[in-house]
């Protein structure tokens, strides 16, 4: 006996197996990201007053990424439609676009990550805080031995709270310049990695998990576009179904970003 309903629809459910499968999988993904978004809300609501950051991420880059993903969602649908009308050439073109868009997305994302890793907050011994991007560390820079100095492009604030809302008029007005800070003046130096505070923590975790989904989706699409597309010749209907199912996953990944973007970048 062969497994039924691999391509044709089961009459009482109206679905073929893989389609039901992917929706079930997406349901579990909804729960996964649901858990993470709940964590986000809880951390944000539970943050001490004035300590939840605003405006820490680059809205321009985030918007570009939003549009890239939206476009890729569309090329994915078109790739499926092309398969459906048996236009293999167009399918190849559309999905090539999808992959290019996905890689562009990941490129921008890594650039944003790098920017955060180069951004330092330094607590100085006199109680003030220096904050800015790393320009250079002197060759003999060593925090433990208190030798050398580090150069930041940024500014100095009296209270950490001033660093929290970069959209505030005061933060907008702040003048950024090169600061040379001797190691001897430094109490604690930390970049804006996930360990910085709960905002960077949840930002890196959620966007990182999302980026992993993009990566996984891209690999699947690449497989179906390249070696896996041989199936188009032998069983075009089943191949089209595969494109549909992988497309559903891809659209879901886009959906997650549609919420991640406003939650992380805009609010």
């Amino acid at each position: 006996m062969e497994i039924p309903y691999t391509t044709e629809h089961r009459p009482d459910t109206g679905l073929y197996n893989a389609k039901l499968g992917v929706w079930l999988f997406l349901a579990s993904e909804v729960m996964l990201f649901g858990g993470l978004f709940s964590a986000y809300v809880l951390l944000r609501v539970g943050a001490e007053p004035g300590m939840w950051p605003h405006g820490w991420l680059n809205v321009t880059l985030g918007s570009i990424n939003t549009l890239l993903l939206a476009l890729s969602a569309i090329t994915t649908l078109l790739a499926w439609a092309a398969c459906k009308v048996r236009d293999f050439g167009k399918f190849k073109i559309f999905h090539a676009c999808t992959m290019i868009l996905a890689i562009a997305f990941l490129g921008i994302k890594s650039y944003e990550y790098r920017d955060k890793f180069l951004h330092y907050e330094i607590a100085l011994n006199n109680g003030t805080f220096a904050d800015g991007h790393l320009v250079e560390k002197s060759a003999d820079f060593d925090l433990a031995n208190k030798t050398g100095a580090v150069t930041l492009h940024g500014h100095i604030v009296e209270d950490r709270k001033e660093l929290m809302d970069l959209r505030s008029p005061e933060a907008q007005k702040a003048e950024h310049k090169e600061l040379v800070i001797p190691a001897a003046d430094i109490k604690k130096m930390q970049n804006y990695g996930p360990w910085h505070n709960t905002f960077t923590a949840i930002y890196f975790t959620m966007s990182g998990l999302h980026a992993l989904h993009i990566l996984g989706g891209t690999l699947v699409i690449f497989y179906l576009w390249g070696p896996g597309s041989r199936m188009y010749k032998t069983d075009p209907e089943r191949f089209t179904n595969r494109i549909e199912v992988s497309g559903l996953f891809w659209h879901f990944v886009d959906l997650v970003w549609i919420f991640l973007f406003p939650v992380m970048y805009l609010t």
């Binding site: 579990s28 858990g35 993470l36 360990w195 505070n197």
Partner: peptide, 25 residues
């Protein structure tokens, strides 16, 4: 299993970040 396990997976990832990367979830 399908709907209750993923939140624990999420929690597991967060705790892994706490333990390995040094976050404070």
């Amino acid at each position: 299993l399908l709907l209750a396990f993923p939140p624990l997976e999420a929690a597991g990832v967060l705790q892994l970040m706490d333990n390995v990367v040094g976050t404070s979830f």
